[in-house]
Simulated scan of single mutants.
Amino acid sequence: MNSRSTQLKAIDRLLTIMEELREQCPWDKKQTLQTLRHLTIEETYELGDAILDNNLEEVKKELGDLLLHIVFYAKIGSETNDFDIADVANEICDKLIHRHPHIYGDVKVEDEEEVKRNWEKLKLKEGKKSVLEGVPKSLPALVKASRIQDKVAGVGFDWEEPQQVFEKVQEELAELQEEVNDANQDKIEAEFGDVLFSMINYARFLKVNPEDALERTNKKFIKRFQYLETKAKEMGKSLQDMTLAEMDVFWNQAKKEN
């Protein structure tokens, strides 16, 4: 691994390049915080894909893309005298020191869970009115549900045992089935949401990241379906012309390979 001085030189090089691009490149000159926003979200998802694929070379590249965005935002902030990269770095350093009194102070903690509880208490002392205040409104619903549950658990609002959560899942499934039987679409949607919320909560108790688990299944399904498409093409058939029984044969083959 590179030395600290080499790492700092690389960051300094990136800052210099960013300054040059902002001054000389027509595209880079035009960018604002608002125009970069959707690109940053896209880069974050690309990093997530690389992590799920365990492709460390791609992880390195995508981290570089995200680092560029951070430097880009800081450069724009410096042009309006609102903040620069030093302000950004010092802000997070100060926050980390303040929120880790068990490292930088005299607080004693027993385990990871106590660290999380202290973290939420400190955030409330900083002036936040709700432990849920920091959950971004624009998060995808599945990720948002997971973050909500993490945060309320941090202040003790939680189940005690996984079995209790599983029983809640079963209870919500039964309530969903009742509404399905009554054919009330609005209530079906509400109960379906409750089922998903309880399943995400159960995932937390099983130490499973629900977003990662679902994306893993998405990738698996894509591979199997594309195998099915390939086999149909080899037979000179389209999927529309095949019976479910024929498709099932290739689907089972795909399951063995993927």
Rank of each mutant, 00 (worst) to 15 (best):
Met1Leu: 13
Asn2Lys: 15
Thr6Met: 15
Gln7Glu: 15
Lys9Asp: 13
Ala10Gln: 15
Ile11Ser: 09
Asp12His: 13
Asp12Val: 07
Leu15His: 05
Leu15Pro: 00
Thr16Trp: 12
Thr16Ser: 14
Ile17Arg: 13
Met18Glu: 14
Met18Ala: 10
Glu19Pro: 08
Glu20Arg: 11
Arg22Val: 02
Glu23Val: 07
Pro26Glu: 06
Pro26Cys: 01
Pro26Val: 01
Gln31Phe: 00
Thr32Lys: 00
Leu33Gly: 02
Arg37Leu: 08
His38Thr: 08
Glu42Arg: 03
Glu42Tyr: 01
Glu43Leu: 02
Tyr45Pro: 01
Leu47Ile: 11
Ala50Met: 06
Leu56Val: 13
Glu57Phe: 13
Glu58Val: 10
Val59Arg: 06
Lys60Val: 15
Glu62Val: 04
His69Ile: 06
Ile70Leu: 14
Val71Arg: 00
Ala74Ile: 02
Ser78Tyr: 03
Glu79Thr: 04
Asp87Leu: 02
Ala89Tyr: 06
Ala89Arg: 07
Ala89Asp: 05
Asp94Val: 01
Asp94Phe: 02
Leu96Arg: 10
His98Cys: 02
His100Glu: 14
Ile103Gly: 05
Val109Cys: 05
Glu114Met: 12
Val115Cys: 12
Val115Trp: 09
Lys116His: 12
Leu122Met: 10
Lys123Met: 13
Gly127Asn: 03
Gly127Trp: 01
Pro140Asp: 01
Pro140His: 00
Ala141Ser: 09
Gln149Ala: 09
Val152Tyr: 10
Ala153Lys: 11
Gly154Val: 09
Val155Phe: 08
Trp159His: 14
Trp159Cys: 11
Trp159Pro: 05
Glu160Asn: 14
Glu161Ala: 13
Pro162Gly: 08
Gln164Glu: 15
Phe166Pro: 02
Phe166Gln: 13
Lys168Arg: 14
Glu171Gly: 04
Glu172Arg: 08
Leu173Asp: 00
Ala174Arg: 01
Asn181Pro: 00
Asn184Ala: 07
Ala190Thr: 11
Val195Gln: 02
Phe197Ile: 07
Phe197Glu: 08
Ser198Trp: 03
Met199Ile: 12
Asn201Asp: 14
Tyr202Asp: 05
Val208Asp: 10
Pro210Met: 05
Pro210Asn: 04
Glu211Asp: 10
Asp212Thr: 14
Arg216Trp: 13
Thr217Leu: 14
Thr217His: 11
Thr217Glu: 14
Lys219Val: 08
Phe221Ala: 09
Phe225Gly: 04
Phe225Arg: 15
Tyr227Ser: 01
Thr230Cys: 04
Ala232Ile: 06
Ala232Glu: 04
Gly236Arg: 02
Ser238Lys: 13
Leu239Ser: 05
Asp241Arg: 08
Leu244Phe: 07
Ala245Lys: 12
Ala245Glu: 12
Val249Pro: 03
Val249Asn: 06
Lys255Glu: 08
Lys256Gln: 10
Lys256Tyr: 01
Asn258Lys: 05
